[in-house]
Design a protein around this nucleic acid. Structure first.
Lengths: 228, 228
DNA sequence: AACATAAATCTGCCATGGTAGATACAGGTA
DNA sequence: TACCTGTATCTACCATGGCAGATTTATGTT
């Protein structure tokens, strides 16, 4: 995937750390996140923290208000629905390309991710499940060989979807349905049935959207930003 | 589009400045771009320059090699083809959504852009034509109402496509073909024929890709990076 | 002359300081 | 009590310094 990465910069490590903290709920949605506090907590300077936050804003996980502060992004309903449409669009197109160009890579990535999802379920680790889920779908996009789509998916759609996934995998323990859908998608790919695979993707994402909608109906709305 | 922007940060201004310099060729493709030199040239500090470069890397205009330097990205053939596929994917999906949800907005935006394209052709203004062309396609994406897709299209695909456009902007004399395709797409939208519209988008982008390929066959290849 | 090696320089990366702007709070007035 | 205002504090933003890694150049050996 990445040809060169071992000398990972502190900024990237920090971004990874903060992203994970947001996804697993360590940093609450809508909460203010200060450069200084994060730097102190990680025992580093404010510079890499600042750059990491800028990156996370591009990814959509935080929102930076100039001279006011950085806040963990709370996705509203329209944002999630837009994201779902976007995701279906990219995944469907990439599924076709991946099956055409690199079916073995695609199937291998899917199977590996499903292994991890099984492990996460057995360990009842919601966060690990969310991450494995993300890897499953990321495999579709990366196997397409289209770097432009892969970058967008990995840097703007994946993290936000993982955030949303984690939000209700804790309360709804029906990972089984999700697992069945992933298995069905894998089977369709093994059979080379693109249309069937695309239909499953569509249904899967729609189900996620419905889950999100219902989980929000019975939840309080944290303040998104100091001003509207 | 942007609700708040007046107090634009120096980092954003710097990013805009560098982006324009790259697109118009002021900074040569493949050339090394130093934080220190840019900061000196703009009479500012290295901090905002560094953050701006990070942003431009996300957009795909530059490539940052850790501890080695930042280089203006030279799109190779695969990159452009990937970008074209990505563009077709987004535009096709957005066309459907726009016709479903806001056909009047879509048709209005298309007609306005076609007006501008006609004017540009009569005035033989290639740059104005390119901008109107971009607005035409952007109308499709924005009319879809999907903010996630619109952001990606505007911030990731747009700049790189503009760069590509500039690369062979001198030679394209067949704006008439392009105009005919846009007119055909508008007609298909007026008739509500989504499939026909999507087919036209596909053909249009393929034509652009062919243009690019031919323009590269008779051009030298600047070095992309110090190492492979 | 060709190559290997080592010193010097260049450059990005992270740490820290100063400043301006925004928010929060306290005190005073209607 | 409610509202306005002035002050204090907080925080992001930009400037600058020190350091480490990488590239280039110079030098000595074969």
């Amino acid at each position: 995937m990445k040809p060169i990465s071992p000398p990972q910069s502190l900024m990237e490590l920090t971004a990874d750390r903060i992203r994970e903290a947001i996804i697993v709920g360590e940093l609450q949605l809508g909460s203010k996140v200060s450069e200084q506090r994060l730097a102190d907590a990680l025992s580093i300077s404010r510079s890499p923290v600042r750059e990491a936050l800028a990156l996370l804003q591009i990814e959509g996980l935080v929102r930076i208000f100039p001279k006011r502060g950085t806040f963990v992004f709370t996705p509203d309903e329209k944002t999630v629905l837009d994201l779902c449409d976007h995701r279906v669009c990219l995944e469907s197109a990439c599924l076709q390309m991946a099956l055409d160009r690199a079916p073995d890579t695609l199937l291998g990535g899917m199977r590996q991710a499903m292994e991890d999802m099984h492990k996460a379920i057995r360990a009842k680790d919601a966060a690990a499940y969310a991450l494995a889920d993300m890897r499953f779908h990321r495999a579709i996009v990366t196997s397409s060989g289209n770097l432009s789509m892969a970058r967008v998916y990995g840097s703007t759609i994946g993290p936000l979807m993982a955030l949303r996934t984690h939000l209700f995998t804790e309360m709804h323990a029906d990972n089984q349905i999700s697992m069945d859908q992933h298995a069905a998608l894998l089977a369709a790919c093994e059979a080379g049935d693109i249309q069937q695979g695309q239909a499953i993707i569509e249904r899967h994402v729609r189900m996620l959207a419905d889950h999100y909608r219902r989980s929000r109906e019975s939840a309080v709305q944290p303040p998104q930003s100091p001003v509207t």
